[in-house]
Simulated scan of single mutants.
Amino acid sequence: MFSPKQNLKIHIALGSTDMRKSIDGLSILVSEKFNLDPFSGHLFVFCNRKQTILKILYWDRNGFCLWHKRLEKDRFQWPRSKDAVMTIGAHELAWLIDGLSIHQKKAYKPLRFTSVF
Score class of each variant (00 low, 15 high):
N48K: 05
G63K: 10
H68D: 12
S22F: 11
P110W: 04
I56A: 08
I12T: 05
F64V: 09
H11R: 13
T87C: 08
L29H: 06
G15S: 02
K21I: 01
V45S: 03
W78S: 00
G99L: 09
R70M: 05
I10A: 02
L43N: 08
K5G: 02
G25S: 02
K21G: 01
L29I: 15
A107G: 01
C47N: 12
I10Y: 00
P4F: 11
R49Q: 14
I28E: 12
L26A: 03
E72C: 03
D74K: 15
A107S: 13
E92T: 05
W59L: 04
K55V: 04
V45E: 09
S22W: 00
L93W: 04
D24R: 06
K21C: 11
Y108W: 11
I88W: 13
T87M: 05
H11K: 07
F44Y: 15
H91M: 06
F113W: 12
A107I: 03
R75F: 02
F117S: 05
L54N: 05
L26P: 14
L14H: 04
T87W: 00
H103V: 14
L8W: 09
I12W: 03
K82R: 15
D18H: 04
L71P: 03
G15M: 07
F46D: 06
S31Q: 15
P4H: 10
G63E: 11
D24Y: 07
W59I: 04
G89P: 01
N62H: 11
V116R: 14
R75P: 00
S22E: 14
Y58L: 13
S3C: 03
I12V: 14
E72R: 07
K5C: 02
S27D: 03
P110T: 07
H103R: 10
L66S: 09
H91G: 04
M19L: 12
I102H: 10
A13W: 03
W59H: 09
G41S: 05
S81P: 12
P38K: 08
S3Y: 12
V30I: 14
L43C: 02
R49Y: 10
S27W: 00
P79H: 02
F2E: 15
H91Q: 14
R75C: 07
